[in-house]
Design a protein around this nucleic acid. Structure first.
Length: 844
RNA sequence: GCCCUCGUGGUGAAAUUGGUAGACACAAAGGACUUAAAAUCCUUGCCCUUUUGGGAGUGCCAGUUCGAGUCUGGCCGAGGGCACCA
């Protein structure tokens, strides 16, 4: 028999799918739609195993839904603006546009080799004018609706690359690319007003019942809603300063008030700028490292002012006002009321500056004389030493009650605060969407008139110029509208803006005038299943949720709220790591082992390799496997099979050479099985057995259930089991036509995983127009069951019985069988428990 | 420090949701076929027993139950997220 020639057959089917436009989708209101989307890739050069896993998972689902009769939208595009293009361009002196387009061509070819069911007619690329011109329009619309603004803000500044870095691009206080220590710098930046939607973004999470809980928790923490109140503190010591407003979640500890602390960036700092000691203090504060950890561990220090704050609940009680390094300007009001007894940070500060520590909450099981000594007490309990607040339960009564009192006395009011900050979208980068703004000669910003859109990126540019490359392109920067001179905004948009609406563009990818047609959107959206890495849990997913709301703000025509109805976060692909004797990383193709234990370098047998733990594949550790080479060697179906087989898709999977080999062998076995089945002598096989129908229907049932729950690894196990069953089956006498009929159902049901092999096998049977086989429920019911027999909860054997056997009959059979004599003999059965068709437990 | 998730053979993992623990696969050991190797196939997998059998067993300790990998409480360990958020 011939071997399965995957090279021939896979390319044959890929060409056919392309020629027949098999995955082209159109709106069809008679069919239920299913929008399956995987996170689109950044075109960095070649696809990696992470892509293979991501897109295989999505493809299996898409193909399954197509078979189930859904109208499936399964598109693909390119997140093609971003820093790597610019950096590569600098190194290779190549135009970022050309570099990007070449990569797209390469990766597109590679994706096609995987046999993905993608409607390539909908392909989009965010760096094309056709895409970003709509984005500029969104920016202008949002500007007009007051959702975009410009303000001065502190940013992460890389002094070597001369650019702003996003928080995630700062690693241990250093620029991820330059390695330079990142500075805080105040810059004028554009912002999206995402915090306006903070409450809704948090509340709507509860309705996303097809999202992993983990992601929802992360977003909730990120948005960080907290309930409290704002309080005005009257100030003494400077006649120009009347009051300071603070936000607090613990107004109930107001009688424990012992200092008030301000951020050094607080507007009131202006009154102290002339004081050289304050200036020095402020400078010191700005030097503290920028990493979160170094901030958290930094010593709490303060600068004492000549100001005093009055306790609003007791005017005779005044406390000193400090500037302190731990107070953030961009949370609350940049001012904190300090209660050392019940907040550890305040406690540390009070200890250092010898401030009063007054206990105002005691635990339930303590006396009223309870005193905070060595550390702050922040647990629940009862209010003490607080006059009219005494006796209130902390926190459930005390906070609400104190706010009521403060509101009544007009000293404060209820307030909900969010941790979520507005989204800074300015980047001093060339390879991004230009911000459609110009400045007049007074420096006032204006949005670019719509008939002058798009603002195109200039093509000839010196990327090695210092700072933002766009600011040195004079003939682009200087522009005239109707005879008036303007200067262009040279910042470009954060690339997360590009990916915040690409899923909408897929619905109307070729529309020239508008980003989308509303009918298209309302038919296809929301995305029914979104699949991608958990690393986007907060940023991309939160930004997209915001963007939907921002586009629909004041003029909502969408018939849905959330862009992604279902979310699945897949795990990473890992591989062992290797280090040679000089402590250099080595790749899997550089090392070899004869016994599976001792590894050495292929090129130098004396160089022993230390095998490290399996880690997520990364170029820096050289533990990557190139999908293209693997497809070349084993074929796409083998890769698809293996990437799904070992671990559940949400967990990390370990890549192994043995694993891919065994998947390859299994594909060969399936093909051999196929040949055997088709060459069975048609005449000698007579009977149509119920067993065959049972087997196939139960198999279909398992596959369908496991497909719906993303238990793809179990599906592979099911296929293995089914294979063994077929091998036994073909030795039996079976009516040929019936055999083929049931066998074709098997092929169809595994086609989402192995589309090339099954297409070929089905084609030989002349089966076209594939449909998911209907499961015949009557074959799911077994008329014989195996019943577990237990004595005192211990399994002592099993007994075959008719389904739904009566209890008495079962017991009779057990006694009759004699297998259990040694447990029954001489023992009295006190009672027994019978679980129908499953188990019987005798208690003796 | 706070929050979330997870602990099952040498390894990756299954387990109809409280009912035969370890399906399926990788690796290992032994065997069969081979002159030999590769490939393929079969067996084994912790403890006692030659076998028949029996015992222990899902991180640890308790509890609920006829019955717990699954439920409850406490502890230990691993991974991830957030981190001066007032």
């Amino acid at each position: 028999m011939e071997r399965y020639n995957f090279k021939l057959i896979e390319s044959k089917w890929q060409n056919l799918w392309e020629k027949n436009q098999s995955f082209k989708t159109k709106i069809d209101k008679n069919k239920k739609k299913f929008y399956c989307l995987e996170m689109f890739p950044y075109p960095s050069g070649k696809i990696h195993m992470g892509h293979v896993r991501n897109y295989t998972i999505g493809d299996v689902l898409s193909r399954f839904k197509i078979l189930k009769g859904f109208n499936v939208l399964h598109p693909m595009g390119w997140d093609s603006f971003g820093m790597p293009a610019e950096n590569a361009a600098k190194q290779n002196k190549q135009d970022p546009k050309i570099w990007t387009e070449n990569n797209i061509q390469t990766m597109k070819k590679q994706l096609k080799q995987l046999g993905l069911s993608i409607d390539w007619d909908r392909e989009i690329s965010t760096c094309s004018e056709e895409y970003y011109k709509h984005q500029q329009k969104f920016f202008i619309d949002m500007y007009k609706k007051g959702l975009v603004y410009k303000k001065e803000n502190y940013v992460n500044w890389d002094p070597v690359d001369e650019t702003v870095l996003a928080n995630e691009q700062v690693i241990d206080g250093k620029g991820w690319r330059s390695g330079a220590t990142v500075e805080r710098k105040k810059l004028s930046q554009w912002f999206f007003n995402i915090s306006k939607f903070a409450d809704e973004l948090q509340n709507e999470l509860d309705n996303l019942d097809q999202w992993p809980n983990k992601v929802k928790v992360m977003q909730k923490n990120w948005i960080g809603k907290s309930f409290g109140c704002e309080i005005d503190f009257q100030i003494k010591g400077n006649s120009k300063i009347e009051k300071i407003t603070c936000f607090t979640t613990r107004p109930d500890t107001l009688f424990g008030f012992s200092f008030l602390a301000l951020s050094v960036d607080h507007p009131l700092s202006n009154f102290f700028e002339d004081d050289p000691k304050f200036k020095e203090f402020k400078l010191e504060c700005s030097k503290t490292g920028t990493t979160e950890e170094s901030i958290a561990n930094a010593e709490k220090v303060g600068f004492k002012t000549n100001l005093f704050a009055k306790n609003p609940l007791d005017e005779s009680h005044t406390v000193p006002v400090y500037f302190a390094n731990f107070v953030l300007m961009d949370y609350g009001f940049g001012a904190v009321f300090g209660c050392p007894a019940h907040d550890q940070r305040d406690f540390d500060f009070a200890k250092k500056y010898n401030l009063e520590i007054k206990t105002v909450v005691k635990p339930f099981d303590e006396k009223d004389t309870f005193k905070v000594e060595s550390e702050a007490f922040s647990g629940s309990g009862v209010i003490i030493n607080s006059e009219f607040l005494n006796g209130l339960k902390v926190p459930e009564e005390s906070v609400v009650k104190t706010i009521e009192i403060l509101e009544e006395k007009k000293l404060g009011k209820k307030k909900i605060n969010f941790r979520l900050k507005d989204w800074g979208i300015s980047r001093q980068r060339y390879w991004g969407c230009p911000i459609p703004v110009v400045y007049d000669n007074e420096g006032m910003p204006h949005t670019v008139p719509e008939d002058k859109l798009p603002v195109k990126l200039p093509s000839k540019i010196n990327l090695n110029a210092k700072g933002n490359p766009l600011s040195s392109v004079d003939d682009w920067k200087n522009i005239e509208f109707d005879g008036k001179k303007f200067l262009r905004e040279t910042d470009t948009l954060d690339t997360f803006v590009d990916s915040s609406w690409y899923f909408l563009r897929f619905c109307s990818p070729q529309n020239k005038d508008r980003p989308f047609e509303i009918e298209d959107i309302n038919y296809w959206m929301p995305v029914d299943q979104y699949i991608g890495g958990v690393e986007h849990a907060i940023l991309h997913l939160l930004y997209s949720r915001f963007f939907m709301r921002a586009i629909g703000y004041k003029d909502n025509k969408f018939n849905f709220k959330e862009p992604f109805k279902g979310l699945f976060t897949q795990g990473m692909v890992c591989h062992e790591t290797y280090k040679d004797k000089n402590n250099n990383w080595r790749g899997p193709d550089e090392v070899i082992s004869d016994d599976g234990k001792n590894y050495y370098l292929k090129s130098d047998k004396s160089n022993k390799i230390v095998v490290g733990p399996s880690e997520s594949m990364s170029k820096s550790k050289k533990n990557t496997i190139d999908p293209e080479k693997i497809i070349e060697l084993y074929g796409a179906d083998s890769v698809r099979l293996f990437i799904l087989s070992d671990s559940p898709p949400e967990k990390d999977v370990q890549w192994s050479e043995q694993g891919i080999m065994s998947s390859y062998k299994f594909i060969q076995k399936l093909f051999l099985l196929d040949q055997k089945i088709k060459t069975i002598n048609k005449k000698t096989k007579k009977k149509s057995s119920i067993e065959l129908s049972k087997f196939i229907n139960q198999f279909l049932n398992k596959i369908e259930k496991n497909l719906s729950n993303f238990h793809y690894n179990v599906i592979i196990a099911n296929i293995h089991e089914a294979y063994s069953h077929w091998i036994k089956l073909i030795k039996d006498e079976e009516n040929y036509d019936n055999l083929i009929k049931e066998y074709s159902k098997f092929l169809i049901s595994i086609s989402p995983v192995l589309p090339h092999l099954t297409s070929e096998c089905l084609d030989e049977l002349n089966i076209k127009n594939l449909e998911w086989p209907k499961i015949d429920e009557k074959y799911l019911i077994e008329e014989n069951v195996k019943i577990v027999v237990q004595f005192n909860g211990k399994k002592r054997g099993t007994l075959d019985a008719k389904k739904d056997i009566q209890e008495e009959d079962l017991i009779k059979n057990i006694v009759k069988s004699k297998d259990f004599d040694k447990y029954l003999k001489g023992n009295k059965i006190k009672r027994h428990v019978y679980i129908k068709n499953r188990l019987i437990n005798f208690l003796i």
